[in-house]
Nucleic acid binder design. Structure first.
Length: 329
DNA sequence: AGCGGTCAAGTTGAT
DNA sequence: ATCAACTTGACCGCT
């Protein structure tokens, strides 16, 4: 119960690394050497995933987002491959399934977030094909590790958001059930607000990953409280939201750039008592999560017993409670 | 061992 | 027209 905090992809201080390669390097090798190298990286990454999950469990971080590069070059137009066809491919799959069993046994949720190149409503058919492939790949790994979220953005607007969202919906129809059942959509910082995508979420039965930082950058007239409630209603499983803070504060210029840490002032008060996953998009990674979790615990301990959370203007009140917690790292 | 150039991919908005 | 920003800087060849 309470909030499940999520770490995104990598670590800052903890020596757990995921590896990748470049297409230009692999293309210089002959095919079998290339596949051997990729197989090696996949195996290393499966082990790193296991270590990452163990670290998360030990530190009470109960959600981990898996990097899109966990299987390097998986859907590259020339170098793309089936894992079954890699040297030691069965073993790679079993390593992932083992990590999935571990995650399940420790109640660690896992998730995916395909990169900016995945655009389901692109006006270029080949981009849509590549995007579908990428989502299918991540859904396959998701199945191995028991992940229940593959989260994408709405894509481009192309001057007509309504048409673009309709194109998005047609592309979703082309996904397998395995991929579609995990698909979620997130409001973004430039184009699609929560209000833009909520109708689509309802129509398609796709949950909204509500990113409150993006909502603050890309407003639509509804409040954080309203967006939170509407987003909660789209979920048929534990809701997932995103939090981050602007690198130079809200008075700075680059409001959509992420800070190293989360400013507790940016944490929506109306999330405090929800049972949700909050993925923490902060450059200091696990260090930022540990700090945020300590602050959250302090607020819950203090506010939770006095009922202050119900008070409309609790913000200044709980800032004062955090003097000790903020500096403890 | 450390450094700099490079890396598959899309779209938008700031400069 | 170029560039940074977005989910995450890491890899590789050279010194």
């Amino acid at each position: 119960m309470g909030i499940r905090f999520g770490l995104c992809c990598i670590f800052r201080d903890e020596p757990i690394k995921f590896r990748t390669t470049t297409a230009s390097y692999v293309l210089k090798m002959d095919r079998s050497d290339g596949l051997l190298k990729i197989s090696d990286l996949c195996k290393t990454n499966a082990s790193s995933l296991q270590e990452a999950l163990q670290y998360c469990h030990k530190n009470d971080i109960n959600n981990f987002r898996v990097s899109s590069n966990i299987l390097p070059l998986k859907t590259h137009p020339v170098l793309g491959y089936n894992v079954e066809d890699l040297p030691d491919g069965e073993n790679i799959i079993n390593l992932f399934k083992g990590a999935g069993e571990y995650a399940k046994s420790k109640n660690i949720r896992t998730s995916f977030h395909p990169s900016q190149f995945v655009v389901l409503n692109s006006q270029k058919p080949q981009v849509v094909v590549q995007s579908l492939q990428e989502i299918e790949y991540q859904a396959e790994v998701a199945e191995w590790i028991n992940a229940d979220v593959v989260n994408v953005h709405g894509g481009g607007a192309y001057g007509d958001k309504i048409k673009a969202l309709s194109d998005f919906s047609h592309a979703v129809d082309r996904l397998s059930e395995r991929a579609r059942s995990k698909l979620t959509i997130e409001n973004d910082d430039k184009t699609y607000t929560p209000s833009d995508v909520l109708p689509l979420c309802k129509d398609l039965g796709i949950p909204l990953v509500y990113d409150v930082h993006h909502h603050r950058c890309n407003k639509d007239g509804i409040s954080i409280e309203q967006a939170t409630q509407a987003a909660l209603a789209t979920w048929n499983r534990e809701p997932m939201f995103h939090i981050s803070s602007p690198i130079e504060g809200w008075s700075g210029k680059k409001q959509n750039s992420h800070h190293d840490f989360i400013n507790i002032e940016d944490f929506p008060e109306c999330w405090l008592d929800l049972n949700i996953t909050v993925e923490v998009e902060a450059k200091a990674k696990e260090v930022a999560i540990l700090q945020l979790m300590a602050q959250y615990a302090t607020i819950k301990r203090t506010v939770g017993t006095t009922g202050l959370a119900a008070c409309p203007d609790v913000r200044p009140a709980f800032s004062g409670l955090l003097v000790g917690a903020e500096t403890h790292l």
